[in-house]
Amino acid sequence: MADLSLRTDAAHGVDGAVHEAASVGDFVQLLKPRVMSLVVFSGFAGLYVAPGHIHPFLAAVAVLCIAVAAGASGAINMWYDRDIDAIMRRTRNRPLPAGRMDPAEALGFGVVLSLLSVLVMALAVNYVAATLLALAIGFYVFVYTVWLKRRTPQNIVIGGAAGAFPPMIGWAATTGEVSLVSLALFALIFMWTPPHFWALALVKNGDYRNAGVPMLPVVAGDTATKRQMLVYTVLLLPVALVPCALGFASLAYAAVATAMSLVFIGFSLRLLGDAENRTAMKMFGFSLLYLFVLFAALIADRALGLA
């Protein structure tokens, strides 16, 4: 019950007041628009590179559904995590911990958008894509947010699967199926997620410790985290080359993927010898670039007919 009382307090905002007039901007903020951009791009990449044809308008609807579902999951996540968001400096100005929005309003917003995105995907595109979309939302909300996030330092390793769904959903939107290549794209984001998130967690370590979130740097310390980041970045290199092994991507993609993966490994090695964690934010920034460049290379492969 102690947890419940903490939640109720946090729902009233850090200043203890209830502000009932949330603005349109607050609802937009609830959708985590910055996180959405990478989700949308990877979803579009999966849709574009998949063999087959989809009507351009339905392709746009599929991407819109992926974006809305990602935002809706983010809104439900913010509703559930409003107590710890109020403690962390990075998140305390979000609409719920800042007391600019009623928690029930945020939950309703997230649930309605989730249902709507799956429904539209099913009606406009196909049932496979809609099922995968529903799985991604469910995984993010129930497996990551509710079950893993506050219980294990492996939270973002397993929970990272939720963020790996978009290219598979995009692929299914075009082909109506799940294939080995779409699983390879899933694996790429799955292996990329731990070093990406832990780079940020190293910098925001104090925030997570204060909030009681067992991120790996909080539980195992910086050095153990950096070693695991190195392991994941090394494993990421062969995973990034799987599309080539499956005959789906060209040698040009292989060259780009190898170069980017080697730089990523280089960042991990530099971070391992960096006691002040000055490299962490640079590595976090590079990790975003890494994924954008690899998916852009796959899109270019398909557009130029190289594969």
Partner: peptide
């Protein structure tokens, strides 16, 4: 959106 989806499908 629903109107256009119907037309396209």
């Amino acid at each position: 959106l629903f109107y256009l989806i119907t037309i396209v499908r």
